[in-house]
């Protein structure tokens, strides 16, 4: 049985620069994937709400398809099979990023859809009445309000996305999780490194979601 006193903190201290590199990759992947999937998710939401049947179908199939699959499966698909399709080397980071964007877009789509639906119809009608086109109405009237209303939920989903990036461990991309496992196995210090990794993720996600809660309270004032 390992007590706290037996913990070898030295291992963690020595590994900190390496782990920090991993964390930077995790954060970069989270940031890019969040921007990409919020953009794509918004497009999908507009498709689901459009009056054109074909667009509705594409949006609905996309969302239901990706929400039925484990993220891990999507990561494998892109890691193993995209290089085959494009006939060449694809960077593990890029293939993971593509997988994350396509997958998470399905979840962001549903958030944006309820965001757009929360804006009263009158807003869009007054836009049209002022002579704005559909794209202008969306761009200047509906979407800014939808984003504002949904900001806390979008941020919460981004925290989930940050946790999900740890899954790139399975394709060996050197994010924070993979770095922690690498050090753990190299130094045979599984307990220290895994507990440390859990602690780091916990502190980051806990305070991030706490900030979201505070933001939410401020918005409702």
């Amino acid at each position: 049985m390992i007590m706290l006193g037996d913990f070898d903190f030295g291992v963690i201290v020595t590994a900190l620069p390496y782990l920090w590199d991993g964390m930077q990759l995790s954060l970069l992947l989270t940031g890019l994937a969040a921007v990409g999937s919020i953009f794509l998710g918004t497009l999908l939401a507009l498709m689901r709400l459009s009056s054109i049947r074909l667009f509705q179908w594409i949006g609905a199939i996309w969302v239901n398809f990706f929400r039925s699959l484990p993220l891990l499966l999507v990561i494998f698909w892109f890691y193993f099979l995209v290089p085959l399709i494009v006939q060449g080397q694809v960077d593990a980071f890029e293939s993971a990023l593509i997988g994350f964007v396509l997958f998470e877009a399905a979840y962001f789509c549903e958030i944006m859809r309820s965001g757009i639906q929360s804006i009263s119809r009158g807003q869009a009608w007054s836009g049209y009445a002022l002579g704005l086109k559909y794209s202008q109405t969306m761009r200047y009237v509906v979407l800014p309000q939808a984003f504002r209303n949904m900001l806390p939920i979008l941020l919460t989903q981004t925290i989930i996305l940050f946790q999900d990036t740890s899954l790139v461990f399975v394709v060996g991309l050197a994010d924070f999780m993979t770095s922690a496992v690498t050090v753990a196995q190299r130094d045979s210090r599984l307990v220290e490194l895994y507990v440390f990794a859990a602690l780091v993720y916990f502190v980051m996600c806990y305070f991030a979601s706490l900030s979201v809660k505070i933001l939410q309270k401020k918005m409702h004032k």
Binding site: D164, S166, A198
Partner: peptide
């Protein structure tokens, strides 16, 4: 607030210790 994959490793490698 802890990613599931980290929890998997905790249960499998850390809990027995």
């Amino acid at each position: 607030n802890i990613p599931l994959i980290v929890q998997m490793f905790l249960w499998f490698y850390v809990v027995p210790e």
